[in-house]
Design a protein around this nucleic acid. Sequence first.
DNA 1: TTGTATGCGTTATCAA
DNA 2: TTGATAACGCATACAA
Lengths: 340, 340
Amino acid sequence: MRPKIMDVAREAGVSAMTVSRALREPDKVSKAKLERIRAVIDKLGYTPDPAAQTLAARRSNIIGVIVPSITNAVFADVMSGIYESAEGTGWQILLGNSRYSPLEEERLVTAFLHQKPAGIIISGIDQSDATSKLLRSASCRIVQIMETGPEPFDMMVGFSHLEGARAATRHILDAGYTRPGFLAARLDPRTQRRLQGFRDVAGAAGMLGEQRIIATPKPSSVTLGGLLMADLLAKAPETDAVLCNNDDLALGALFECQRRGINVPAQMGICGFNDLEMMAAANPAITSVRTHRLQMGRMAMTMLNEALTKPEIPATTTDLGFEVMIRASTLRQPLAEIQS
Amino acid sequence: MRPKIMDVAREAGVSAMTVSRALREPDKVSKAKLERIRAVIDKLGYTPDPAAQTLAARRSNIIGVIVPSITNAVFADVMSGIYESAEGTGWQILLGNSRYSPLEEERLVTAFLHQKPAGIIISGIDQSDATSKLLRSASCRIVQIMETGPEPFDMMVGFSHLEGARAATRHILDAGYTRPGFLAARLDPRTQRRLQGFRDVAGAAGMLGEQRIIATPKPSSVTLGGLLMADLLAKAPETDAVLCNNDDLALGALFECQRRGINVPAQMGICGFNDLEMMAAANPAITSVRTHRLQMGRMAMTMLNEALTKPEIPATTTDLGFEVMIRASTLRQPLAEIQS
DNA sequence: TTGTATGCGTTATCAA
DNA sequence: TTGATAACGCATACAA
């Protein structure tokens, strides 16, 4: 049988409560007893029973994490940061995959709240009314990740997808392209805000062509990137650059251009979003908006841990920003030199 | 306050035990009471407290899943299958990331066992002695995934990495390449078995050149694929094909060839492993060994669910096999035609 | 600083 | 088929 708290207490010559305190509030136990208790715990290999702890404390050591996809490299990176930062803290991570479905998200929040979690990390700022209500009345700390926005439930760490797309579009125009297009898949809220950013900047420059915006609700993939590029070339052959909603699409668009003998970046500029590792390795290297995914995950978990450890940590919103990584795929100068 | 089992019992005019039974063994409750209880449960919105259930039943509804990486697309796919198949079953998935560390894996197994899990899904067949001991004496069902092998702990679903690499190598030789190389990163056990498969077949054909085997313990990436290809070309310029240990490396190798003006597949054949989605979309499309990752995850969870639901389900090992997806990157014929 | 009494919400066991 | 009783292993509240 596994040793229980009473076994430790007996062996150490103290009460069960003192052992319990030694584990959770060592400051409130005298040095002598603390040492004795710790020795016994080591000797017996005692570990508290999580279920009993949860039942008695009316609160678990579970942190629920809800992401819309676990195969999308973007969220895989964020999760990796979360797991990394959770290591050694004692918090147990319960991962939920909402598959981009608000209903499934609500189901997950409900299921997680039944576990009396210590905290919840949830992606995005577009929760349904029902989900929002659940979260607002929840008695645990909450971190929204991926995005920043007004009216956080509690804490927030992310960046502005709108501004990211604006900056990328600005770069494309600065690079000398004049008929930019946009490729989008999935059409989730963040995608839509990126599209808005593109429209803002291209429109302000008088270079917006709605026929150059190719969007589909289908899930994103490299293959789809190629198909969307083909569609774009068919509908708007004048296009001389594309901002892709993500890096998979950008890579697929590059391959499609190569298959058609379209020179990138001379005849077609290509820009991705997220800056996955492969962007820099491609040929030509692909320009992309770098987002700080690992750091976002780490910080979300760190913020939560602080909020749960120290009392009275206020709600804060952290904007991690982004960075346009300019690479060969949008450097049109070679063509300009040829033309001059 | 959340309704408890006693609230339901009172409202339905039965004892708490009968409510408990109605939930878990409805067959043992009379039709009349069952209906009444169910109505009350709906009305009150009763949900059992997981912690109390675990404490009383000495067994949780948790299924621990241990993978060596969560950013690697291969495991992301497997996890996706697991989550998909777990949906609606009531099992809670606790995910652990061992980061390819046997020690971390042992730590995770220990932590999971403390939760009195209903089952454990663990990647690979190379558990340390300590981990093996823990798992053998565990009182829950276990599924090993990713690979098949002798001496399973319990259930198994995977495929032979050795045979996968053998088949790929055979294809490369059949395609007419005579000086094949191998690119490997990470060097985990599965990588090593793939390398063994390559050596087997290339050696038997008298076409093995040890100088053409480039391996590094570094984590895999597209960038690294390019670097390894550069290394290979420096050390063994005669190389006319590469089997890459995974698709990231293959893509990187392709880009590096393109940067150097080396024609793929005419001057260099490239074959990947796993057949991630992007392989078919690349230019040229890249040959790869398709593995059934989503299905593997689904099946692992399904097997576990069956074993936990129905009594006396025996241990079974399922080999899901693989498929060499032959694509342009290893179709040398064009060159052969030119030469003839 | 330490200990006692009590409750957390459910299920196992056994008897009816 | 149903129910009474006793755990399950720990933490909260309070007292000493």
